[in-house]
């Protein structure tokens, strides 16, 4: 057969696509279980870190135990959306955390933010998943950045898009601001936008849940 003919070219590329597509699917399928386990372990570890829980080791079982002993999880839902919410089982510090998500600069950013039970202060923030630029936007996961959120006072009285501020502010001495990442202005802006949007939505649902509980 003439190697330069259209039929040969088409058949060849089609067969190559089928063979390699099948090979990738096979590798993916054979690792599905491991990937799911890894995903669960990462999720539990992030929850523990967000609530500053100390697990008894690094094993999946240790993280699961720490969560089972200290955290209640439930879904709070309303017409506007659902929030996977975590309540710390501690009468002195009944902190509440929820999973936030939204568009970053390149892709979805997902994380957990833990607040005091009156939603006035941030206890901690941790990220579950992000695909921002390595070395720039991806630095939102680094400790120096997440540590800035600890103790921030959420401004529930001001503008709804400035509950928390990531980056510069014209107002001096404010207690709801963290430094942005140099060279990653777009990720910083996207994070600020998604955090404020999620905080506003969550407060509405959380307040309703609290009033129903009482």
């Amino acid at each position: 057969m003439n190697k330069n003919s259209a039929i040969y070219t088409f058949t060849f590329i089609f067969l190559i696509c089928v063979v390699f597509g099948l090979a990738i699917s096979l590798v993916h399928y054979s690792t599905l279980e491991t990937l799911a386990k890894n995903e669960a372990l990462n999720r539990n570890r992030v929850i523990c870190n967000a609530f500053l829980l100390k697990a008894d080791g690094e094993s999946p079982k240790a993280y699961q135990q720490a969560i089972d002993q200290n955290i209640n999880a439930r879904i709070l839902s309303s017409d506007t959306g659902n929030f996977e919410t975590f309540f710390r089982r501690d009468s002195e510090n009944p902190d509440v955390g929820f999973v936030f998500s939204g568009m970053g600069f390149w892709d979805r950013i997902e994380g957990i933010i833990v607040l005091t039970s009156d939603l006035s202060q941030v206890i901690n923030i941790q990220f579950l998943d992000q695909k921002e630029t390595p070395g720039l936007g991806a630095r939102i996961e680094e400790k120096w950045f997440t540590d800035q959120f600890k103790g921030l006072e959420i401004d529930w009285t001001g503008r709804s898009d400035q509950r928390l501020i990531v980056g510069a502010s014209s107002r001096p001495n404010i207690t709801n601001r963290v430094d942005a990442i140099t060279g990653a202005s777009q990720t910083s802006l996207a994070l600020e936008k998604l955090l404020n949007s999620e905080l506003n939505q969550f407060r509405e649902i959380y307040n309703r849940y609290q009033s129903e509980k009482e």
Binding site: I16, I24, T31, T34, N38, E39
Partner: peptide, 19 residues
């Protein structure tokens, strides 16, 4: 296409071995 296929396999393997 061939290189990309092997890279995708490597990516899946590393993700499974050490996330």
């Amino acid at each position: 296409l061939i290189i990309a296929s092997y890279v995708m396999m490597v990516d899946i393997i590393i993700k499974a071995l050490n996330p």
